[in-house]
Write a protein that binds this DNA or RNA. Structure first.
Lengths: 341, 341
DNA sequence: CTGAAAGCGCTTACAG
DNA sequence: CTGAAAGCGCTTACAG
């Protein structure tokens, strides 16, 4: 009584075979309209639901996507980079709309993502968000590709990177935000954030930064760059080094908002006024960027579109369609951390 | 060749029966040590992974938990209340550690959570985070209970609420933070946030607030309360009303950080200094609360412990153990929005 | 349009 | 300690 109804229970009550029940519930055109209605009515009445495990086993699929997050060295408890957190909602939503369930896990929970998700039939494909060092990560991507795993990742787009990437135009973002500072008549620039193969997104932002300086005759001397990973602490310490060095700067482009928040704090702690003495800008438009003091000028990436595109591309990959990497545009969000009133 | 190995492939190579392979891989004591090692070696070599669907179907379970988030009216794109977002990491982590997968979805994606998760065998249990109006939500909880669904929720603890709740001591939090303001010699108090059955957490915080005022001989006149839902906009508009009313207040307890951020903005826009003229405090200790100007004094809930406890309790429920609701302690985080320097 | 039957890949009671 | 067999609840080719 209390135990779950199966398709046989419905078949019995409807006076048809179990095969017919299965067909009717899946809206097969093979089934007579009348039979179909009857079966559906009984199914509803018995509160019948197709058993996912049985259905998936039979069809050799899972109708589930896996979202693998990178465990970030964040200051709060979430362990997830706030930028990725804002993407989570749209990925969840897009998966659900496509009729797929979404499994969420951390990348470091497993060594072999393919084995743990696709081989076990837990997921039909994988979405990757974030990573530590790209040079290490690349090997994992190559491995996934060799195993013919269906996966998409958010990040820099480069023909040499394994797999399909969806990402924003980091070069353009770096260029635009630097141009914004140049338009404000800032003279002495610095870039804070790693600018090498370990972090290709940051590198592209840096290259956009350099290009903007170059186009404005500011190459050479003022192309100052200090490495930092994407945390407030790292930004704080990089900025402290810069301040100690005595180099005069009046414009700082940070590779991420988290870095910028740390950098801003370091300058304030040294008694330097932001933006009066130095303009500071970030990248990502994380929720906290609106609340910093002063509010942070930054580069926004469309996280809603990003989530939708990641899911859409992955589903295409799963249906063996050809999928192109996608480069999305960025948008400058001007707030008070850059503009002198 | 390229197709996935099954237990039969291993059986063939190991020269044993498929049953023995299954037993060996599950570390059954029935299997000879030698046989077990051989089977495991071959499994590793063939990159064999147990098919989840088959295994789950057979065992009539899913080893999966469902996390149902409430789609909040947030200002950013995530659609998820930042407080719950910080819990996501620890829930993900705790599930993985218990050997369970975590399915994430929005509550409004479905009308019948039981049917959509437990009846389909997609999940063995459900974790609920957030809701809109508690009076509506309560019916859903009652329904879940009637269907004997395994579920736990984060929220107010009340014997009359259906199901098992894990939550922080909202009454104590409201009391402590109000006492903090009293200790600062504030005189005229207001509480901003709904204080009725629609939002039991807010109500408990309000009751703690009232109790603290009462104990300090401040009951009666100063027990001012203005309703607001947990968004910056709602806080802003409630504070604007308060300001317009001309009532003098020098201490405002907000039911959440989001409300407090809006309230603070409204006062600043009216030229009132925070905290010099009015102390403003929030509740939740969301990431952005550290960055507001001035940084927000608030009540912190231990999100890591909360996530772990939710998962632990749900697993106990699944194994049909008796589970008690859990009330966790809170901690006041004093920042500059309350304290005059 | 419908039914009987096979089979997806496991786990486990049963028999030895 | 091991194997043959049943069965979890579906979907779908096959036959009519």
């Amino acid at each position: 009584m209390k135990s779950k109804a199966t398709s046989f229970d419905i078949a019995y009550q409807a006076g048809v075979s179990q095969s017919t029940v299965s067909r009717a519930l899946r809206d097969s055109p093979l089934v007579n309209q009348e039979t179909r209605d009857k079966v559906k009515a009984i199914a509803r009445e018995l509160n019948y639901k197709v058993d996912k495990n049985a259905s998936n086993l039979r069809q050799q699929q899972s109708r589930t996507l896996a979202l693998l997050l990178f465990e970030d060295p964040t200051t709060d408890d979430s362990l997830i980079n706030p930028f990725f957190l804002s993407m989570l909602g749209s990925i969840t939503r897009a998966s659900a709309q496509a009729g797929y369930d979404l499994l969420v896990s951390f990348q470091n929970m497993s060594d072999d993502w393919h084995a743990d998700f696709e081989d076990t039939n837990k997921a039909d494909g994988i979405i990757l968000l974030g990573y530590g060092d790209f040079d290490d990560y690349r090997d994992k991507l190559t491995q996934l590709e060799e195993q013919q795993t269906h996966f998409v990742r958010w990040g820099a787009i480069d023909e040499n990177h394994p797999g399909v990437s969806i990402g924003c135009d980091n070069f353009q973002g770096g260029f635009d935000i630097t141009q914004h500072l140049i338009d404000l008549r800032r003279k002495q620039f610095a870039f804070i954030g790693g600018a090498d193969s370990h972090a290709p997104e940051f590198l592209a932002r840096y290259q956009g930064y350099c290009k903007a300086l170059e186009e404005n005759g500011k190459a050479g001397d003022s192309v100052c760059q200090i490495s930092a990973i994407s945390t407030e602490e790292s930004g704080y310490s990089a900025a402290s080094d810069l301040i100690k060095s005595g180099d005069k700067v009046d414009a700082i482009v940070c590779a991420s908002d988290l870095i910028a928040i740390g950098v801003m704090q370091a300058f304030k702690d040294s008694g330097v006024e932001v933006p009066d003495e130095v303009s500071i800008v970030g990248y990502d438009n994380i929720p906290a960027s609106r609340f910093t003091n002063p509010p942070l000028t930054t580069v926004a990436q469309n996280t809603i579109l990003a989530g939708e595109l990641l899911v859409k591309s992955l589903l295409e990959l799963i249906s063996n369609e050809e999928v192109e990497p996608q480069l999305m545009p960025v948008e400058i969000v001007v707030r008070k951390s850059s503009v002198i009133m």
